[in-house]
């Protein structure tokens, strides 16, 4: 990738983080996660009922690299809320279970929200996420 393309990619990713109050960088899509950790993070977000944008990092390895440079965080998934890194699968799961996640997202979780993150595999699909998908693809 040329330096120009790298700079442009970085700007696009930075914009995705700035423009979307809740954005998840993940492997695959919310409908078809391609990694168990991404699936689990999607399941936690969906269980809160919060809308979120998602960006699939798989189409271009450079996306993953640039996201990690911006966030100083080595792994995917990564959840950003209001432009700030919240964490990866472990932190999002812990925050879901303590109730902090809904608070951070500014939503009241539905009354029937489970206490623990529903199993990502075979979880009942939540409401369709709003916002971008693969906009960098």
């Amino acid at each position: 990738m040329s330096e120009d393309a790298q700079t442009q990619l970085r700007e696009q990713i930075q914009q995705a983080i700035t423009d979307n109050p809740v954005v998840l960088f993940m492997k695959g899509t919310p409908e078809q996660p391609r990694c168990g950790f991404s699936a689990r993070t999607v399941a936690a977000l969906e269980a809160t009922g919060s809308p979120f944008a998602a960006v699939d990092v798989l189409p271009h390895p450079a996306i993953r690299q640039v996201v990690s440079e911006i966030s100083n965080w080595p792994t995917i998934p990564q959840l950003f809320v209001n432009g700030e890194l919240v964490g990866g699968c472990d932190i999002v799961t812990e925050m879901y279970e303590s109730g902090e996640l809904a608070e951070t997202l500014g939503v009241a979780p539905p009354d029937d929200a489970p206490d623990t993150v529903p199993d990502g595999e075979g979880a009942v699909p939540g409401p369709a996420p709003m916002g971008i998908e693969n906009r960098l693809g």
Partner: peptide, 14 residues
């Protein structure tokens, strides 16, 4: 918590 996790990740780098 982010920085705590970073401390552990940093042990292994790339």
């Amino acid at each position: 918590r982010l920085d705590q996790h970073r401390m552990v990740y940093d042990v292994f780098g790339p």
